[in-house]
Design a protein around this nucleic acid. Sequence first.
DNA 1: TGCCGTGATCTGTGATCACAGTTAGGCTGG
DNA 2: CCAGCCTAACTGTGATCACAGATCACGGCA
Lengths: 230, 230
Amino acid sequence: MASALASIGRIERVTLGERVYAELRELLIAGELAPGERLSLRTAAETLGTSMMPVREAVARLVADDALEVTPNRSVRVPLMTVAKLRELTAVRIAVEGFAAEQAALQRNERDLEIMRRFDSAFRQEARSARPNATRAVRANKDLHFAVYRAARLPTLVGIIEGLWLKIGPVINLDLKESSERLTTGDAERQHAHLVAAIERQDGTAAREALVADIRSAAAFIEATGRLPQ
Amino acid sequence: MASALASIGRIERVTLGERVYAELRELLIAGELAPGERLSLRTAAETLGTSMMPVREAVARLVADDALEVTPNRSVRVPLMTVAKLRELTAVRIAVEGFAAEQAALQRNERDLEIMRRFDSAFRQEARSARPNATRAVRANKDLHFAVYRAARLPTLVGIIEGLWLKIGPVINLDLKESSERLTTGDAERQHAHLVAAIERQDGTAAREALVADIRSAAAFIEATGRLPQ
DNA sequence: TGCCGTGATCTGTGATCACAGTTAGGCTGG
DNA sequence: CCAGCCTAACTGTGATCACAGATCACGGCA
């Protein structure tokens, strides 16, 4: 058979539902959709230029991982976060993401480190800026975290963590966008530095501790704002 | 308003899609669907007595959790398990379910313990039977494990673990159904006893160790059968 | 006898229609 | 001027239709 054909590689079919899901997921993680905000299937379909079908599929998936909820009144909205739910999520994040960071320290290669350093410095640059761009800061923070998690070489774990970020994204990042105060304290910046340094010297315990500190301080900040119901 | 109305509780609307999802999930966890087995949306809809719509929604969710996959040939099937995937899943299970067991030991109340003891003895009875009923053993095993996980009081974590069981169910439990050898070694029985005892005396470390041993021996058994591709 | 083209039949995906239930706003009656 | 009803518009859910692509078996050609 023609040898040229062997090199073109398989083209992957990506369904519309998949693309809508990716779109909504990014909005949620980036905090573009506020807790309590309603979402209409028909309106979303129209703005995305598709029919209602792909939106239904995407929303069904997000509802399944508690990233959206359908109220008894037949309307879809971003779930409200309570103090109790935030604490539970934080406990789970500490266990799961802490483990991922520890593994990342043990399994990382040079390429992983390069990527982490790039996003780390992107975040630092944003945090130290006189007028920080919240959107860019949020993205750099997410990219850094997931660069770490991916370095653990456990794809299943990354999927689990994505599910967790889908739930906290609206709260954590919406807050960050409204006031950049959390950026300017330098907490996150410092913990990121510790994290990357620990991974660099393959110190699993220190990597876990740095990540846990990062998670804890973000959760404490949100809780301190006092804007959560209950 | 009438006080009697306050006591009846809200009836939850359960959609057809939800019910189909629950049905398929039980089949997967119980190992009733073998890896590689194909699933037709139309056929499934017909046997369940619904239209294709609810099945589509349920399958979309299961595909999202990697409990099912749609091949490039447009057909849905239970994913094949490879040795590498089994090892990765086992590593994640050890971290996540181990943490849950540890928390369960610290948070459990008397009611939790009662439930665990009941399922533990149901499993033991099945394992020691001359002709063990694999289906009942699988169910008792699952019930015991999830009784432990629920005792940790972290619903999000239980959801994550359900996702993991969806992936390993077809392999672990199909194997158990085909040969009851794994039951008769008494390994699981012994580790379950250690687990419940540790939770009883609120020994988190021992509880984690017992659960990890259980997970490890099951994974080792599957790997030793040599029936996994790659 | 061996191989390749071909059509019937299956697959999931997307669009559209139908429906029951909810909501919100305007209108009517006091 | 205000309260309450009532209708019109909207909600998600389920069913049905349409379609492109893949599979597989049969039949004809070499």
